[in-house]
Design a binder for these strands. Sequence first.
DNA 1: TGTTAATTCGAGGCAGCCTCAGTATAGTTT
DNA 2: AAACTATACTGAGGCTGCCTCGAATTAACA
Lengths: 188, 188
Amino acid sequence: MTTTRRPRADARRNYERLLAEADAAFREGGIESSLESVARRAGVAIGTLYGHFPTRRALVGALLRERNEGLFDLGDRLLAHPAPDALATWVRAATAHAAAYSGLAALLADGLDDETSELHASCRRMADIGERLVARARETGAVRPDATGDDIIALTTAAASLHEHRSAAEADRLITLTLAGLATTRPA
Amino acid sequence: MTTTRRPRADARRNYERLLAEADAAFREGGIESSLESVARRAGVAIGTLYGHFPTRRALVGALLRERNEGLFDLGDRLLAHPAPDALATWVRAATAHAAAYSGLAALLADGLDDETSELHASCRRMADIGERLVARARETGAVRPDATGDDIIALTTAAASLHEHRSAAEADRLITLTLAGLATTRPA
DNA sequence: TGTTAATTCGAGGCAGCCTCAGTATAGTTT
DNA sequence: AAACTATACTGAGGCTGCCTCGAATTAACA
């Protein structure tokens, strides 16, 4: 058996500082901000950053962890307590999540198919929730019969990208319009 | 007055080769492909590339010139000869244009507001055509009364980004759904 | 206090960005 | 066809960022 030692105090401190500074840097300059600058801001050598986060995506994944839990909780709640606007609520929440940092939307969109991505699992989970929510809406007749989970993925991804490159207003508008299109009774 | 001299033969040759190789490189690796590799492929020193195209965006702009003309011609034709599906045709064509290279959609979306971008003028022209087309559709009653040119920009941008990060199918599907939403008679 | 495994450090190799002083040459003039 | 010169080309060099790895440090435990 492997007796696990308590992690060193400096390691935990550096881990937290790196996360905090990465969050700040990514908010300001997007997800492609220089990792060396993140390490500098955290007062830590570059090697230490790589020790904790071997990959930029691993860092992003760690940054998203808490946020993810909140999102998944919302999804579970929406699934547990049916409501007519559940799908719309979900799409808006997922979009906001994917638009947390500039560049994130693309990373998440790519992460869905890329099994090597540290974000793959959480992307799948998001897709799964969306899928279940449309399925229910389809049964209710709230959305057109050919609506699929992919439609939700596409809409979320697209809206998040819009949020980043155009504005929050345009992103929200796209959601409104596309959901209206999904509510169409007969396929166009 | 400044008399414009004919450019030197070697300059024109290099210009063309650079364009050709940039096109190939960007098709393969997206718009962020290394410019040094483009110069290498063209058999030219890096300084020569910068001599012709001071900016990556300038290079992209040059690459898009012909393509742009074709697109604008289509726009003018659609405006000249009213047809029920003119708007849909335009959105699909503009999306295909914006998805020519991976990374282009984002560049164009940003270029609309950024007056320093070499792509600004052509982005505006695209936006203008879209605007006129929705205006007409609005008058016809083919789209909801609150539809605007921004809706078209948003949809085009979003679909192109989807084309890049998800698939052509999802991009097309978003267009279908959003246009259906725009066709909704009363605002949701 | 000593031991040891975990952690940190940062120099170094590599690639890409972009500039600029020096060099080459196409096109012109005599 | 030689000389001239504006135009264009060259590529080394300074900079930043990516990532790795061997050496140095240090927190945890006995």
